[in-house]
Amino acid sequence: MNKELSSIEEIDAFIQNNRLSMLYFSQENCSVCHSVYPKLKDLLTKFPSIKLAHVDTSTVEEVVGKFLIFSAPTIIMFIDQRETFREGRFVQFGPLAARLQQISDFPVV
């Protein structure tokens, strides 16, 4: 299930409540954002332990400063509330899938 988050509080709660969480930041007028998101959702069906949430930076403007979003789209992966990696603007799905496979294969301690 993919969530739409509309406040900093919702974003913080999502990261805290999901050990493996991914945030997808986009803008309403970004054509690249609209083409990448469905591909990302499809990719994540192979990794059910990774929870995805979408944030529209046009409506939650304070995320730009908090998460240092300099371009759209931006993907940030969190493990245990710590940023593990980020992808910005041009998402390479091959390397992204390999990283997600490594994360999902890593045992929970």
Rank of each mutant, 00 (worst) to 15 (best):
K41R: 10
S49E: 14
F70L: 14
D42A: 13
A72L: 03
V91G: 01
A98P: 00
S35F: 03
L40I: 00
V60Q: 10
L23H: 10
V55R: 09
D56E: 08
S71N: 08
Q102K: 15
S58L: 07
N29A: 09
K66L: 06
F14P: 02
C30F: 00
N17L: 07
D80P: 01
F93P: 02
I76N: 01
V36G: 04
I75D: 04
K51I: 07
P38Q: 04
E87S: 13
V109S: 15
Q102E: 15
S31H: 15
V55Y: 14
A13D: 15
S26G: 13
F85P: 03
F85S: 03
E62V: 02
N18R: 01
M77A: 05
H34C: 06
M22D: 08
F78C: 06
E9Q: 15
R99K: 15
I50K: 01
P95A: 11
F70A: 08
E62K: 03
C30V: 03
Q101L: 15
T84H: 09
L52V: 06
S71M: 04
S31D: 14
L23A: 07
D105A: 14
F70Y: 11
P107V: 14
I103E: 11
A72G: 00
K46T: 11
D105Y: 11
P48F: 06
N2R: 08
Y24T: 00
M1C: 06
P73S: 11
Y37C: 00
R99C: 08
L68Q: 09
R19P: 05
R82P: 01
G88I: 06
N2Y: 08
K46N: 14
I15R: 06
V36A: 08
E4P: 00
Q92I: 04
T57Q: 00
M22Q: 10
S71V: 05
T84S: 08
V109I: 14
C30H: 02
L44Q: 13
N18F: 00
E10I: 11
I103R: 04
T57N: 02
I11T: 01
T59Y: 07
E61V: 14
S35G: 01
A98V: 07
P38N: 04
V109Y: 15
R89F: 11
K39H: 08
P48E: 08
K46G: 09
F78D: 06
F78K: 04
Q92H: 13
L96A: 11
F106V: 02
D56A: 05
I69Y: 00
F25K: 12
F90P: 00
P73K: 10
E87V: 05
L44N: 15
G88R: 07
D42H: 12
R86Y: 12
E4D: 13
F25E: 11
G88K: 05
I69P: 01
G65W: 00
Y37T: 03
N17C: 05
G94S: 13
S71A: 10
L68T: 08
Q92V: 04
K3W: 14
S26E: 10
I79K: 07
V91P: 01
F85Y: 11
D42W: 04
F85N: 03
L23G: 07
Q81P: 05
Q102T: 15
M22K: 09
F67H: 07
F93D: 05
L52P: 06
E4Y: 09
V36D: 10
P107E: 12
F70I: 08
E28W: 05
Q101D: 15
A97I: 00
I79P: 02
N29C: 04
K51W: 06
T45F: 00
